[in-house]
């Protein structure tokens, strides 16, 4: 099984520990993982701003880096969804298509492909799970609360295997945190209001950690937490699954 690790640009630059946790976790589970070193970004910031047309070279670079693997694994639902929905190439559409099919968000990959049934780490804390929208409603990592389908949550299913971890119930488990890429600056006031409301749902339920599959949402929440000197912390799901002491 040839696996390529795709580390989103902001994780690479600002949250290397999340990339490290992802890599170590996959290795521990017996995967051989390549990290194509010329990778940059999936192009989502441009595309979501209306500039998908500028992404031609980014897409080509992405294909250079990630074609030919059985799986591309990424610790971000949002970047994974972007690749799945929008990676195209005029000259190499077959390769683009197979990457679109083979790209997996980390939790999806652990749950659906590796079918991980044991997690050997402990995290004796109260944890609130932030279901980032693109993972939730784009990749369907969990049953969206809007739908009338049997409930499931792949991230929660993995976290529940961690010793001592106590997942708290939330009032609005499917609510957006207000990050939304350039929305965070384009609609700054609203974005921050949404973030504050989201954090409050977690702290109202006594979460010590807000945990999620997307560091981008968590970066936004962490920024608000920091500015307001709040006690709750954010953490990527890969860090917990890989084993981290808080």
């Amino acid at each position: 099984m040839k696996i390529a690790l795709f580390i989103p640009c902001y994780v690479d630059q600002f949250y290397p520990q999340v990339g490290i946790a992802t890599l170590e976790l996959l290795e521990k589970l017996g995967c051989e993982v390549d990290y194509p070193k010329n990778q940059t970004c999936c192009g989502q910031p441009m595309a979501n701003s209306g500039y998908e047309s500028k992404n031609e070279k980014i897409d080509e670079l992405f294909i250079d880096n990630f074609a030919g693997y059985d799986y591309v694994v990424c610790p971000s639902g949002s970047c994974t969804l972007h690749v799945k929905d929008h990676l195209h190439s005029a000259s190499r559409e077959t390769e683009a298509g197979s990457i679109r099919n083979n790209v997996y968000e980390l939790v999806e990959f652990l749950h659906d492909i590796l079918k991980v049934d044991k997690i050997e780490t402990a995290f004796p804390h109260k944890v609130g799970l932030h279901a980032s929208c693109h993972g939730l409603r784009g990749l369907r990592i969990a049953a969206a609360p809007e739908l009338n389908i049997p409930p499931f949550n792949k991230t929660a299913a993995l976290l529940q295997k961690v010793k001592g971890l106590d997942l708290v119930d939330l009032h609005m488990p499917g609510e957006c945190c207000g990050f939304g890429g350039t929305f965070a600056v384009g609609e700054e006031a609203l974005s921050v209001k949404m973030g504050k409301d989201r954090i409050k749902d977690h702290t109202d339920h006594e979460a010590e950690f807000i945990v999620g599959n997307d560091m981008s949402c968590l970066m936004h929440l962490e920024g608000i937490i920091g500015r307001n000197n709040m006690k709750v912390k954010v953490m990527h799901v890969a860090e917990i699954l890989n084993g981290v002491s808080a």
Binding site: L136, C176, G181, T182, F183
Partner: peptide, 11 residues
């Protein structure tokens, strides 16, 4: 642009 593309509307 008045959206985070959260997708709840579609669901």
């Amino acid at each position: 642009f008045a959206s985070t593309l959260c997708g709840s509307c579609s669901d």
